[in-house]
Simulated scan of single mutants.
Amino acid sequence: MSKVVIALISGLLFGAGLAYSGMADPARVQSFLDLFGNWDPTLAFVMGGAVLPMAVAWMIKSRLASPLAATSFDLPGTSKIDRSLAIGAILFGMGWGIAGLCPGPALADLALAPKAVLPFVVAMFVGMAAHRFIPVSST
Rank of each mutant, 00 (worst) to 15 (best):
L68I: 13
G100I: 04
T78R: 13
M1F: 12
A123R: 09
S31F: 02
L64E: 08
D82G: 13
D74M: 07
A27T: 12
G17W: 04
M124A: 08
F120I: 01
F125C: 08
V4F: 12
S21C: 04
G127R: 01
M59H: 11
R63G: 09
D25E: 11
S84N: 14
V4T: 15
V122P: 01
V4M: 09
P114Y: 04
A19D: 06
P76Y: 11
I87T: 04
A16Q: 10
K80E: 09
D25N: 15
L68E: 09
K61I: 04
S10H: 10
M47E: 05
L12A: 12
L75G: 06
F36Q: 14
F92N: 03
P105G: 01
G17L: 00
K115A: 14
F36R: 13
L101W: 09
A70S: 14
V126E: 00
S21K: 02
V51I: 15
L13W: 11
V46N: 06
W96D: 03
A108K: 02
L112D: 00
L110C: 10
L107G: 02
S72Q: 13
L85R: 11
V122C: 02
M1A: 13
G88D: 05
R28Q: 07
P67W: 05
P41W: 02
L18H: 02
V51D: 02
I60K: 15
V56G: 03
R28S: 03
G11N: 10
S138M: 00
G48Q: 06
F36N: 11
I60N: 09
V117M: 01
P103T: 04
P53H: 05
A113I: 02
A7K: 03
M47S: 12
T139H: 09
F73I: 04
T139S: 13
I6K: 14
A130C: 11
A116R: 15
A89V: 15
G97Q: 07
G104W: 05
L101K: 09
V51L: 12
F36H: 11
F120V: 01
L110E: 01
V4R: 12
P67T: 06
G95F: 04
A7Y: 13
G95C: 05
W58C: 09
A44I: 08
A16I: 12
N38F: 07
I81N: 08
S21Q: 05
